[in-house]
Amino acid sequence: MSVRPLEIDDRRAVLDQLRGRIDALQGGPSRLSVPVPSVLEGLARLRTGGVYAVDSASLAMVLASGASAAGDWVGFVGWDDFGVEAAAQLGIALGRTVLVPTPGEHWLEVVAALVDVLRIVVLRPAGRIDPRSASVVQARLRSRDAVLLVHGERGTQGAWPQADATFSATEVAWDGVGRGSGRLHGQRARVVVREVGRPNSREIVLPYAAR
């Protein structure tokens, strides 16, 4: 195999190319990127085999909606308070959604089985996850084309020991509500992405479909 010189145009592109090359040499599945909705384009990236921490339910739904709209199946595990209407408004195709509200002690097996067949699994763990279970799931993810989003309460560090990236919604503001007047029209938030390297952030309006 001949090694061609790399075209150096951007540091990130170089890293991507190198990663792709390592994957190809290792023989594992290349890490494909999973579509994200247009509001998060250029800010958040999801790659198959990755684990990402999210601290807001609506942001988790938005992240999952890209793949769902593209025709993939998504699953929500441990969401015993899943808001169906909000999910539909945020662009998740309910016909391609699997919900396991209370997996209980079986959460590890459920997640492992679902990442086999779904594109995105959004897990809300009951407590902190021990590194051994995490490594089991991560090994499984690497051999499949799936993404795991871990939803934790705001402010907590995240239940997953080492996530590829952390998405958090900060400076959340609600439009349209006055003091006894108006109604909720929309939600704005500054989405902060913490990856390896410098944190990246942008203010977005959550894409609730007009109803």
Binding site: D81, A86, Q89, G176, R183
Partner: peptide, 12 residues
């Protein structure tokens, strides 16, 4: 019914 964005967490 409440118009606008729906709540993401609905308690059982």
């Amino acid at each position: 019914r409440i118009p606008g964005p729906a709540p993401t967490r609905v308690f059982a």
